[in-house]
Design a protein around this nucleic acid. Structure first.
Lengths: 146, 146
DNA sequence: TTCTTTCCTGACTTTAATAGTCGGGAATAT
DNA sequence: ATATTCCCGACTATTAAAGTCAGGAAAGAA
């Protein structure tokens, strides 16, 4: 509970890695995987999906790899998480924040609380850009592996 | 993501039901299950576990059932969620909020963000008592099924 | 052209967590 | 006694997450 799925964490770390190499040409999946300890084949799938978000793009071939479309300051953690967790089916019960229909027809006592929690989380996600994360890592004062 | 597990929701709804019947004697599992649309045998397991938290207690036999130990105003959603999701193993990586050890030795750029989100969520959970939930249901102005 | 390198694609397998069930035993009151 | 209820441990089922794989397509280098 409240533990972001690995896939989400991998996606964020991959983009973080791209952000650190902004304007240095495409970064290979294999490099990202190595730098961030992410299973290679899994990362292939994840990055490929992320292209649809418009956050990253890729180039094939010898000098190929992935790269950020916008500068790190203009991409937030919220953008990524929202894209990865966008709910495709409209059949979800918003009130219960559950995946099946709500037995209380959307009038359960808990709904407003779940919604507030979700909003509180995304407030933080939205105000955290990848540039912030880079800065934060610097401030922590430990030798980046770059 | 950010969707509380069914077990958590069932636990909260069960306690909510107990709160509504405070000082009316024990409430049978079967009654709670019916009122809150929770699978009976599953609810047995959940309520039995919750006894260890000190939030609820039970009585067996003909007039048996479950009941709240403290008044609804003194029990928060946070109390319940914290108990159900207390992490038993100490081997968790706090920085990454993941269940396996952190590949960055606790110095990853995301850790402070995950922690802030968790705190924001529990701030809301902690300040929501079951009395609040009852009041909230009244305010919404729909006929309670009681 | 051909070769190498890289991303691309869809289907597949594995793993782990959640969700839910079951049979019988132990209190408690009538 | 006996009906009713919670209790307990083990069990199964379902689902989502995590990860893998084989081969194909683009891009550039030789």
């Amino acid at each position: 509970m409240l533990v972001p799925p690995k896939k989400n964490q991998y996606a964020l770390r991959a983009i973080f890695e791209l952000a650190k190499h902004m304007d240095q040409g495409p970064v290979k999946i294999s490099e990202i995987a190595a730098a961030q300890s992410i299973p290679l084949r899994f990362l292939e799938v994840i990055l490929n999906q992320l292209k649809a978000s418009g956050i990253v793009d890729s180039k094939r071939g010898f000098y190929g790899g992935y790269f950020l479309v916008k500068p790190p300051g203009q991409v937030s953690v919220g953008d990524v998480l929202r894209f990865l967790n966008r709910e495709l089916p409209v059949t979800d019960c918003i009130a219960c924040v559950s995946k099946t229909s709500c037995p209380f027809d959307g009038r359960c006592a808990f709904s407003s609380m779940w919604i507030r929690v979700k909003q509180a989380a995304f407030n933080i996600y939205d105000e955290t850009s990848f540039q912030d994360l880079i800065d934060r890592e610097q401030d922590a004062g430990w030798p980046g592996e770059q």
